[in-house]
Every structure is written in structure tokens, then in C-alpha cells.
């Protein structure tokens, strides 16, 4: 059989997101990732909840299950347990996955069931017309918070660390170069892979990530982490991240290659260790003047739920119901 191209993973359905929506580029990235990894459409299932992001399965030519608000991880758990051979993806948003469905996301991650969970974070409710979400920054004005939101937002990756996630990554919607590769790494991970994708809602929360994603300023505001490599970013990699051992906080520094006078040697920079959950926590919470971390921030190997689940089940002879019916004390009146 000829290999499928990313176009083969498109359906005949007209895509109904707003023109300019970040979801278009994520959709393309997903289709490309599926083509790159040689996914079989019949063995691939996209399970989604409710919201703009959750419409994605209609546009991917695999099995698709568009379920109810917040519950996609629970449906996906049933699908994966019933047939562990399937490659199961969950598509959710910041409202779907972290508000109404926070509980299910928590448990899917802690169980480490082999799902690829894509959380499109646009820090707003789109499909219900623009209310603030659990990732909205304090002061977000919306129809339900005309005076600005007052509650503290959740950091999706930090939530995943707390839940014991074994794979945590972050990406930007428009990063067509990096996104398919990252999705493939998530897909190859055995266990629950959590990928937060910053997504631009051009109608209700336009450019909320602009300082991070804008190509002009991205170099100074994004750091792409790679396991075993020093944490460097900025134009020509002139900047780096160092751990202040007195405060146990990260700080941005210039490397001496670019500034021999004030810069620090590369050996002083932190080396990314994706198995270190404490480092993951620090990277996920970095905010200006530190850059935002992208790539595979955390990855560890742990037993997957579906494997342990089936291993724990009895492997004995399959008992027939006629045998089970006669268990216990019986009174035999047959002649």
C-alpha cells in the first residue's frame, strides 16, 4: 500500500473554524504528524470533548468520536482499555480539559494510560462566545467578567506535573516546523502524553500570546528545550538559563560567547533533564523576563495503565457461565 500523505488524513467535511483561527495550523500539524509516522486510519481514533478544538475529529480521516463536554479523557480511557491496539488521541481545550473536565484529565494522566492528549490553550471560551476560562490571566475582560477576571489561572503543564504525567510538552500553533515532530514524540511515548498547544483565538482573545509567538520577538521569548543540552535561547543562542543555587530560582543570563565581558560560560547553564520533575516545574512556570519553555519538558518511563490493567486480569481458563452458576452451596433435586 502506498504511503499516505497528509492530505489523505483530511476528510470531505468543510472546516468550520473562523478564518485565521489557530486551529487550522494545528490541524495541519496533526495531519502531517499522522502521515510522517505512517499512521493507519483504521487504527487511529480521535476523541474530543466540546468546544472549538473538539471539532477537530470531523476533519481527520480516521475514526473520530466527538463526545460531551469535558469527558473526552474518560471516553478515550474506555476505548483504549477495550482495544489497547488502537492509537488514541484526545483533543481538548482549556475550558473543556481544565474546567469542566479537569477531574478526568487528572486521572488519565495519573493512570498513565497511553493517550496523546492535545490541549489547545487559547485562554478563553470560544464556542460559547468569549467568556473567561481557567487559564485566562487575571484581569481578562469578557462578557462574564466585564470588570476583569479576578481568579488565578492554572498553568496546564504544572497541573500535569501534579497529576504525575509522564510526558509533558508545549508548542505554539503556528510552529509548523516543530509541531509535527513534537506530536510524533508524544505519539511514540508509552503512556499519557500531554501537549499544551498555545492557540490564537482571533475573535475572542486575539494575540494573547503575541509576545511569545510573534516571529519578531519569539527568539527572546521562547526557549526550545532538548534533553541533555544546555538551556540556550535568543538570537544566535546568546542567552541561557542558570539556576541560582541560593534562591533555587531560574535566571536569564547572557553567554560569554556573545558577551565576553558580562556573559557567563556555557558550562554554568542548566542542562535540560527531561526526567527531572522539579526542573519541569521550574521551566513550566517561567515568566517574563524569562522565556516561555517549549518542546518536551518532561518525559519519564512508567507502566501504562492499559498494560497493567490487562496483566492484572486473570489469565486462567475462561470459565463458562454454566460453571459460575453452580458456584457455592447448591441443592440438587435432579432425579
Amino acid at each position: 500500500m502506498a504511503e499516505l500523505s497528509f492530505k489523505d488524513f483530511a476528510t470531505d467535511q468543510e472546516v468550520r473554524w473562523c478564518p485565521g483561527c489557530g486551529d487550522y495550523s494545528i490541524l495541519k500539524g496533526v495531519q502531517r504528524a499522522l502521515a510522517d509516522q505512517g499512521a493507519k486510519p483504521e487504527n487511529t481514533v480521535f476523541v474530543s470533548g466540546i468546544g472549538c478544538a473538539s471539532r477537530l475529529p470531523y476533519y481527520i480521516n480516521t475514526y473520530g468520536f466527538h463526545t460531551i463536554h469535558g469527558r473526552a479523557p474518560a471516553f478515550a480511557t474506555g476505548v483504549k482499555l477495550a482495544n489497547p491496539e488502537l492509537d488514541v488521541w484526545v483533543v481538548t481545550g482549556d475550558g473543556d480539559g481544565l474546567s469542566i473536565g479537569g477531574n478526568h484529565l487528572l486521572h488519565a494522566l495519573r493512570r498513565n494510560i497511553d493517550l496523546n492528549i492535545l490541549l489547545f490553550n487559547n485562554e478563553i471560551y470560544g464556542l460559547t462566545k468569549g467568556q473567561y476560562s481557567p487559564t485566562s490571566r487575571i484581569g481578562t475582560t469578557s462578557p462574564s467578567t466585564p470588570g476583569g477576571s479576578v481568579d488565578h489561572p492554572v498553568i496546564p503543564g504544572l497541573f500535569a506535573v501534579g497529576a504525575g504525567a509522564t510526558f509533558i510538552a508545549r508548542a505554539v500553533d503556528i510552529d509548523q516546523k516543530g509541531l509535527p515532530g513534537l506530536l510524533n514524540q508524544a505519539s511514540q511515548h508509552k503512556g499519557a502524553a500531554f501537549i499544551e498547544i498555545l492557540q490564537n483565538c482571533i475573535v475572542y482573545n486575539k494575540d494573547v500570546f503575541d509576545n511569545v509567538s510573534n516571529k519578531k520577538t519569539a527568539a527572546d521569548h521562547q526557549i526550545h528545550v532538548h534533553h541533555g543540552e544546555p538551556l540556550r535561547y535568543g538570537k544566535d543562542g546568546c542567552k541561557g538559563i542558570r539556576l541560582n543555587t541560593k534562591t533555587l530560582r531560574l535566571e536569564a543570563v547572557t553567554v560569554d560567547e556573545c558577551d565576553p565581558r558580562k556573559g557567563v560560560p556555557v558550562e554554568d547553564l542548566l542542562v535540560h533533564d527531561e526526567t527531572n520533575a522539579a526542573l519541569a516545574q521550574m521551566l513550566l512556570t517561567m515568566e517574563s523576563p524569562l522565556p516561555m519553555a517549549f518542546g518536551v519538558i518532561h518525559r519519564v518511563a512508567k507502566a501504562t495503565f492499559e498494560t497493567s490493567f490487562w496483566n492484572a486480569k486473570s489469565k486462567g481458563r475462561r470459565e463458562k457461565i454454566t460453571h459460575l452458576l453452580q458456584q457455592g452451596t447448591t441443592l440438587d433435586r435432579r432425579k
Binding site: 468520536f65 471516553f75 478515550a76 486521572h107 470459565e319 457461565i321
Partner: peptide, 30 residues
């Protein structure tokens, strides 16, 4: 206690997850 009889039991995180996982299993053919 009867998992040798062609039934797998899953204790979900809540009532909603329980029914959703059951529907997911039905969708997947069980």
C-alpha cells in the same frame, strides 16, 4: 471477582467517567 468470565471491571474516578468509559468501550466493540 469473575474476571475469568469475559468481563473486565474498571473503577472510574467518578460516575460520569464510569458511564463515559463504558460508552467508549461500546464504541470500541465491547
Amino acid at each position: 471477582d469473575m474476571d475469568e468470565a469475559g468481563v473486565a471491571t474498571f473503577q472510574a474516578e467518578d460516575e460520569i467517567a464510569a458511564v463515559c468509559a463504558a460508552i467508549g468501550a461500546s464504541y470500541a466493540g465491547k
